[in-house]
């Protein structure tokens, strides 16, 4: 249902998204059977493809040509995919999007090689673009994503962190890649620099909202909807916005302490979910997400008149209101 809504928003881009989908499949082709299986397993697990979508929509404000834009759109999705494969090793995750992860189906080493293969393909693909600016944006983003993850590991189970720590972390973890999708799309399509800057900021605000909603969904969705146990973020020690907003709750403090020792029972997990769901922190977190969305909308308003403006607005709203 959610995916249907998204598809309706970008219906006029459908042929181009199909091109991207085919290119992704081609990019992931390997002479290795294991790599083919692992990559196609990831590809077929779906995903919203919002990063390529942002690349293409931003490019609409300039000289749009899908034969050129695919060299920017495909790598953005590949970088996202590759980092998920490696994240699953770090988090020891067995399930993603309702399917076994590469590491659980094969092993950690296979996941490392698969991630490296995908990153390699991403860079190989984008090297068709000769403008160094596009590469500088992407490379900086890859480095910053890692920095964000290093900080995330450092911050695990640490309750004495503030909102600033959280925002800095999610900026690097998620917002930067969406911001870069918009910026790279604009740069490759030679969009006017002032417009490029607005698109970049739009991507940043949408990305922040996206991650906050993601963090909320981890508590309010069912295990089935998430394709993994609800509350997994907290079980792994990631202190997200809903928790930061109620970090003085004695039960939460106790839960984090037990989670850090890896001794949480299923009963305790369900109890924690109930506490978070019944608290104000979910609504408070969604308010923060809405504030970012409002900022994103403001950027859209100031873009030049173009049919894509409405789509950017719709996609931002979809992201803010999505259910999983």
């Amino acid at each position: 249902m959610e995916k249907m809504k998204l598809k309706m928003i970008y219906s006029d881009l459908k042929p181009d998204i199909e091109i991207i989908e085919n290119e992704l499949e081609k990019a992931l082709y390997s002479t290795s059977h294991v790599l083919n299986d692992a990559s196609l397993h990831l590809l077929r697990a779906g995903g919203k493809r919002i990063r390529p979508l942002f690349v293409l929509m931003s490019a609409k404000f300039g000289h749009y040509n899908i034969d050129r834009m695919k060299y920017a759109a495909v790598p953005l999705e590949l970088i996202h995919m590759g980092s998920l494969v490696h994240d699953d090793v770090i988090d020891h995750s067995d399930m993603r999007r309702g399917r076994p992860t590469v590491r659980s189906q094969w092993n950690n080493r296979v996941a490392m090689h698969t991630g490296n293969f995908i990153f390699g393909r991403a860079i190989q693909y984008v090297s068709q673009i000769k403008d160094p600016k596009a590469h500088q944006i992407l490379a900086r983003t890859m480095v910053e994503i890692c920095n964000g993850e290093v900080i995330q590991i450092e911050d695990k189970f640490r309750l004495n962190q503030n909102l600033k720590d959280y925002f800095r972390r999610i900026k690097r973890k998620t917002a930067l890649l969406i911001e870069s999708s918009c910026e790279v799309g604009a740069v490759v399509a030679n969009v006017d620099p002032a417009v490029t800057m607005r698109l970049k900021r739009f991507g940043y605000y949408v990305g922040m909202s996206y991650q906050i909603v993601d963090d909320v969904l981890d508590f309010v969705s069912t295990d089935k909807q998430l394709g993994k146990p609800a509350g997994s973020d907290l079980l792994q020690g990631n202190i997200t916005l809903p928790i930061l907003l109620m970090k003085d709750h004695p039960k939460i403090i106790q839960f984090i302490e037990r989670a850090s020792k890896g001794i949480v029972t299923e009963e305790e997990r369900l109890e924690m979910l109930q506490i978070v769901r019944n608290s104000d922190s979910i609504q408070e977190a969604l308010k923060v997400s809405d504030q970012y969305l409002a900022k994103a909308m403001k950027e859209v308003e100031q873009l030049p008149e173009h049919p894509t403006k409405k789509k950017l607005r719709d996609i931002a709203l979809f992201i803010g209101k999505r259910k999983f």
């Binding site: 991630g115 090297s127 590469h135 992407l138 890859m142 480095v143």
Partner: peptide, 28 residues
């Protein structure tokens, strides 16, 4: 992953796209 991002960043900053291509192919 960080080293992988850094090699790309160093070459992107000096505009050496040819070597970026060669090294990414070697990683694949």
């Amino acid at each position: 992953d960080y080293y992988s991002g850094r090699y790309y960043e160093i070459l992107a900053n000096s505009g050496n796209i040819s070597l970026i291509r060669q090294l990414s192919e070697s990683v694949v």
